[in-house]
Simulated scan of single mutants.
Amino acid sequence: MEEEGISTTMKPLLSHTEKHFTAGEVVRDIIIGVSDGLTVPFALAAGLSGANASSSIILTAGLAEVAAGAISMGLGGYLAAKSEADHYMREMKREEEEIINVPDTEAAEIAEILSQYGLEPHEYGPVVNALCKNPKAWLEFMMKFELGLEKPHPRRALESAFTIALAYIVGGLVPLVPYMFIPIARKAVLTSVVVTLVALLFFGYVKGHFMGSRPVRSALQTAFVGAIASAAAFGIARVVQA
């Protein structure tokens, strides 16, 4: 039975909605920023607490580090994304020249790529011919399936820089909050440890959830790395002071 030219066997397919996570680059930037933001200022504050610095000094140094770290991390994200975009453009220009100068070789590469997916010559032949008639689609196909490169978003570099910097600031303020309200550094550091470890556990859990790994395991690993970093900084400060 068919309704309006659509068979009943096709209806389940038309009503099916696929759910895929497509914000991987943004999440990656957030992970980079928050991870460093939680651990680096935390380790700095713990180290200064081990050196018996006052809460005001620790807070001042911590805020300065957060500002400098956000600028540095944001710049690093911008340069990394810009390098990826430049690399894509270079490879695209080279591939475009090859399509113009050696079209037969490039067409043979299309056939080879499609054959790796189990297609026979009589099956991929029409696809090769169709792509050869459409230079733009041909170029996009070669970039994606031969070189494994995805075209970057035009604003990717700026968005990456802003996302990483903002995530670093958000993460960096967490371990410093106790020093804003507790004037005695040795008491503030204990609160900072608890607050930061909770934040690391929560962040690690969320990270694991979005990245497809085990959330609990990710939470424990993230908290463990942060604890090691702060313990090392605290111990070094105590040794230097002694």
Rank of each mutant, 00 (worst) to 15 (best):
135 P>Q: 03
207 K>R: 13
46 A>Y: 07
240 V>P: 01
8 T>Q: 05
184 I>Q: 15
151 K>D: 03
126 P>G: 06
180 M>H: 04
238 R>N: 11
103 P>M: 07
241 Q>F: 10
205 Y>P: 09
224 F>Q: 04
59 L>W: 00
128 V>P: 00
13 L>V: 02
207 K>E: 07
107 A>G: 10
11 K>V: 12
170 V>R: 08
228 I>C: 13
179 Y>S: 04
96 E>N: 09
198 V>E: 11
203 F>W: 15
4 E>I: 08
92 M>N: 08
5 G>H: 08
72 S>A: 15
31 I>K: 09
27 V>E: 02
125 G>H: 09
234 F>E: 10
50 G>T: 10
23 A>S: 13
77 G>S: 04
217 R>F: 11
242 A>H: 10
8 T>L: 05
145 F>W: 15
149 L>D: 13
67 A>R: 00
150 E>R: 06
232 A>V: 15
198 V>P: 08
92 M>I: 02
2 E>V: 09
93 K>G: 00
67 A>F: 09
199 A>M: 06
97 E>W: 05
14 L>C: 02
90 R>W: 07
204 G>P: 05
106 E>D: 01
102 V>Y: 13
52 N>T: 08
20 H>D: 07
178 P>G: 03
241 Q>M: 14
208 G>P: 01
51 A>Y: 11
142 M>C: 06
115 S>F: 01
